[in-house]
Every structure is written in structure tokens, then in C-alpha cells.
Design a protein around this nucleic acid. Sequence first.
RNA 1: CGGGGUGUAGCGCAGUUGGUAGCGCACCGCGUUUGGGACGCGGGGGUCGGCGGUUCGAGUCCGCCCACCCCGACCA
Length: 477
Amino acid sequence: MADEKLPTRSENYSEWYNQVILRAEMADYAPVRGCMVVRPYGWALWENMQAGLDRRFKDTGHQNAAFPLLIPMSFLEKEKSHVQGFAPELAVVTVGGGETLEEPLVVRPTSETVIGYMYARWIKSWRDLPVLINQWGSVVRWEMRTRLFLRTMEFFWQEGHTAHATPEEALEETLRILDIYADFAINEAAIPVIKGRKSQAEKFAGAVNSYSIEAMMGDTRALQSATSHDLGQNFAKAFEIQYLDQTNQLQYCWTTSWGMSTRMIGAIIMTHGDDQGLILPPRLAPIQVVIVPIYKNDEERSKVMAVVENVRAQLSAFRLKVDDRTGVTPGFKYNDWEMRGVPLRLEIGPKDVEKGSVALARRDVPGREGKSFVPQEGLAARVGDLLEEIQAGLLARATAFRDEHITEVADYDTLREVVQNGWARAWWCGNPACETKVKDETRASTRNIPTEQPGGKGHCVVCGETASEQVLFARAY
RNA sequence: CGGGGUGUAGCGCAGUUGGUAGCGCACCGCGUUUGGGACGCGGGGGUCGGCGGUUCGAGUCCGCCCACCCCGACCA
């Protein structure tokens, strides 16, 4: 709980971000540098996110399982680009039970290797395919610069790992999951995202191709919000994941992996939040409606609380909280729940008892404009409608903001300027030298090559060579 | 790992020429309050980052160490 005003987003965006998380009690710093504690309010949000994703995975035939935290070092070394990509950020266990281990164990930075090892044992025949498994857990990467939710040394996520008989099926799976991520982001988190393929320089270590959904934060920086990888036969060959096909030929599998993490919470905070604090999308909000009772004395209290209980019963379909704390004023509570981003607030006081009304304030419309007095009767329908309206409104607002800050650019000078305060969409020849030049000179990297392309050809914004695809350039988290 | 900075109550800070540690917020109790961040009174809380040295005496001076933060190369 806070006693002072939050820094505004325009005066110090990153301090605003940190303060919102701490004051809303989403997370806190752990005793180990770079690690975070997800507090109950933040975890409740994550549980709602998990439910939305998990349902989508199960609907498309996936099952959950659990694989070990510790992985033999030699496993990571089996896939060359994989180990090169992850080596600098591995946490390694060298001692166990007081004895130096014969082989060091790495704390998983991701689980392709150990899961690949198991798949090699489980898959024998084309009849065993596809294997569609997801795991909810956490992984550790020894990051140098950390930020709550955006980049912590341990983070929570889901990682899906699938094995298929053909490259077409693997690609289809990769893109199906990308669609699921986009659908979840748009329809549950109210975050408009752009689907696309990562450049070769930006792809996952060990993948043939990586795909991502990219979201624009309130400061216009980009946040990669989920990724889906087509691993080709790289891991299948490294771990000998093989099957006999219908003609009795031994074949390597085609595998995929994909993940969305608690980083997505950071995306929600930075997409919707305002200078008062969080604004949570109703579908994911741990508390959708909060009731603040107002009274001066015991007599008023009992009258008010009777109405509060009545309203609570009426609204049983929603995730609802009655703020019955004593010792803090209603004004304090308003600010507190605004900080925590609860979509709707009901204030019930003596006047409402008399008039059969409640004061209803919507979080997405700050101040007096968002507040109205409505009858207690028919409140459930009104609340339901409003929550949907807020959900849609958040998406519309974020979409408008994003579109205002994406500029199609044709020349390099404009590109340099645009990426200072927005994203640039431009033709790119695909040459890594061109994206490196942009990164070095502007700090903007390629985010992805959007799935939706205008078609035709253009000239690379950097070198002028013929280009057949457009790419997004942006400064990223 | 390079460059810069900071360590005193949970947080933010003050602490003079060395003299035995204080302020605001938060927290606890009581009372008055309560429709947009209330107020009064009374409390609790510290090996002053660590170790060593100088000194009758060190938060303060000296040495070494440690931790953390910010800025650059890597990243869900």
C-alpha cells in the first residue's frame, strides 16, 4: 500500500513499472539478485492466465506432464547451436550431498534436451506420433540485467514439446500454437499482438525457424510475448528420436517447442496501466469487482452491510471482494484498488441505502467520468455488460495506440527517426548485415516478419536490394 | 567483465572538530474520524554492510573485503 503518488509514465516509465508491481503487491524482490517472489495477487493473475492457455492446449489435443529440473551437462552439448546459445546463462550444480559430481548438472534453462532424451525412448513407431506434451514449471537463466516479470533469473512458464512424423505436421503445429498464443493475448489479455517469423539472428538457439507474437508497450517499446519454434530434425538427430514408418523405414522425427511465461504479466501491466496504477483486463483480473462500504457509525454500518451482502449475493457469478478493512478511509481504498487495477468498483454508503442505488466506478475511465450512480436492481446484468465493455475497450484502446505508433518506412533516415518513438515496418532483403547495422546504429532490432504481408516486392530499407518481405523494427525489452 | 555510484530501523534520509544514534513514512495500542490518499496522544523496532587497525572512546579516521544499484556487450 502506498502513501505517495506513483511516478507518472511520462516522467519515468521504468520507475512507474517497478512501483506499480510493488505497490499492487504483484511481486517482490527475492533475497537472491535477479529473482522475484510472485505474491498472491500476482499469482492469482497467473493462475487465470494458465487456465486460459491450458484449456486451449487441451482443446487441441495436448497433455500436461512434468520433467526434471536438473539436466546432465552433456545433454545440452549434444545440440551445437543450442549449447552455444545457452552456455553463458547456465546455472550449474557441481556438488551434491557434499561430493563433487562426476558430471555437472545444469538447472534447466529450457527442456528440449531432457524431453528429447525421453522422447527417443518413448517413440518407436509412426503409431506413436504425434506426441503432444506441455509442461508448467520454471526455468533458470543467469541473466545479467533483470526486471520484475520481464527478465528474472528464474521465471515461470509453460513449455510445449511435440514430435511429428513430417515437417509439414511440425510446421502446422508450430503455427497452430502461434495462433493460440495470439488468440489468448487478444481475447483474454486484451493485448493486440503481431504474429510473425523471427529473423535467423533472433531465432531460438537450435531452431530452424522461430515464430513470435510481439506486443507494443505503453512507451512504444516491443515485448516478445510468446514464441513457437519449428525445430526441424535438429533435436531429433541430437537425441536420436526415431520411428519406423509404414514402410518399415527408420525416420527421424520433426519436433517443435513453444512457450509463454510470466513475462506476459509485464505485457499486461505495460499495455493497459495508467498513471493511477494497473488496469487489468476483466477476463483475467483476480478481482473483477470490489465493494467499498461507507459508514460513519455502527448504526449506518449495519444498514450499509445489509445492502453490501445483498449485492454480493446478486453478483455471485463474478470474482468479487468486499473491502471491509477498518482504519483506512474510503478514499484510501479507492486509490488502493485503482493501483491494483480492479476493473469495477462499487461504493455503497448511507445515501445508497436510502435511494436503492450504488456508486459504480470503472477503472478504465478515471475520475468523475467513470463514476455513476445506478440502481441496485438489475446490477448483475449491468456489471456483466460493463465488464465486457471494458474488456473490449481495453483492446480497442491498445490497438489504436499500437497502430498510431507503427509507421511504414521506405528510407533509412526515416527508419532511424521512427524507431526512437515507435515501430517501423519496412522491406528487408533478409541479409543479417542489414539488421545488424540497424541494431548498432539505432538500438532497434528486427522483431518479426509479420505473417500478414502486403505481397509483391520492395527495396530493402537499408541496402536497397530487392526484398520480398516486410519486417518490423523496434527497440525491445 | 569494463565505467560510475551507494551501504545508518521495513522504506526514504540526517548525523557538525571522533564523545555512546535521530527524523519522516510504515508498523502496534487507544480515542476521534470515514462519499477521493484523515488526525491526536502513546509505543515497539538498530550487532550503523563485514573484518581488522588507530584511539581513553569510531556511524565518523585508515586498510582490506563484501553486497547492491546505474550505464555498456547477451536474453522468454
